[in-house]
Nucleic acid binder design. Structure first.
Length: 263
DNA sequence: ATGTCACGCTGGGCGTGA
């Protein structure tokens, strides 16, 4: 199974690039975040024409998550929202079982600054995600993918010194990340690339992409039922394409999974 | 690093969030 996770920073603005990705990478499943789709306005028909079914959790101007599933795969057990999350109306979590694999697309609360009320909400979201992850992993093969808005460790940020007093690097956020892994999930990128820099996000400003001032914020967390064969950050999608379609500030993470049951 | 992008509201800039 080929799974892609991508924060598109508005699906409406990124449709040409999403179709480009479907054509180039032929994924089985795409986990989308920050779709920013008005409820009722998701472009289901356009994806059907491209051979993909979509399930979505949409909240309008902000956030929004979705799953695109190639039409030959069965989709069932769709769940929108995360039990115990601070505000389900923010549309930050969607699940479905895809070809027998439980797949989540999530967009974790940014947190703004460590002293902001949204930072406490971020930690609460992580805790709810950990509880749900535990249930999912006990239920079978599971992938939790998305923009987790945290760097796992200092290798995942271009310069830790630039982040003193900021979010995405704090011990609290990182402890919550490890607690999710501890229910029985592996960080797919690190399974294959124990040392490589794997940035997935670069600020639009200040030529950050060109200077590789990035962070690894996008993850696929996979249960032990699934082997990881290959991982790739598709950096071409962080650049303009040949006809000038603009990029998201995130690049897609591509993960090739192999099922092999272990006990 | 603070040089951008996208949205909604509006009727061409501003406020918001990242």
């Amino acid at each position: 199974m080929r799974l892609v996770t991508w924060n598109v920073n508005s699906l409406g603005a990124r449709m040409p690039r999403v179709f480009e990705l479907l054509e180039q990478l032929d994924p089985d499943v795409v986990c989308l975040q920050e779709t920013k789709v008005t409820p009722g306005a998701f472009p289901h028909m356009e994806f059907a024409m491209a051979g993909y079914a979509a399930v979505e959790h949409s909240a309008g101007r902000w956030n929004g998550v979705a799953l695109l599933v190639r039409e030959d795969l069965e989709v069932d057990r769709v769940v929108r929202g995360l039990e115990g999350e601070p505000d389900v109306a923010e549309a930050r979590w969607i699940e479905a079982r895809v070809g027998g694999v439980q797949v989540v697309s999530t967009y974790v609360v940014n947190g703004r600054t460590p002293d902001h009320p949204m930072f406490a909400a971020k930690l609460d979201f992580f805790a709810a995600a950990r509880d749900r992850a535990r249930t999912l992993v006990a239920g079978g093969p599971t992938v939790i993918a998305g923009d987790l808005n945290v760097t796992r460790d200092d290798r995942d940020v271009w310069d830790p010194r630039a982040f003193v007093g900021a979010t995405h690097v704090t011990p609290e956020e990182r402890a919550h990340f490890e607690a999710i892994l501890a229910v029985g999930l592996a960080d797919a990128w690190r399974v294959v690339e124990p040392d490589a820099v794997g940035f997935t996000w670069w600020d639009y400003r200040a030529g950050a992409f060109h200077k590789n001032l990035g962070m690894r914020l996008d993850y696929a967390l996979v249960s032990r039922h699934l082997g990881v064969r290959h991982v790739l950050v598709e950096r071409s999608f962080r650049k303009n394409n040949q006809v000038g379609d603009k990029p998201s500030d995130h690049a897609p993470l591509v993960v090739d999974l192999e099922r092999h049951e272990r006990h």
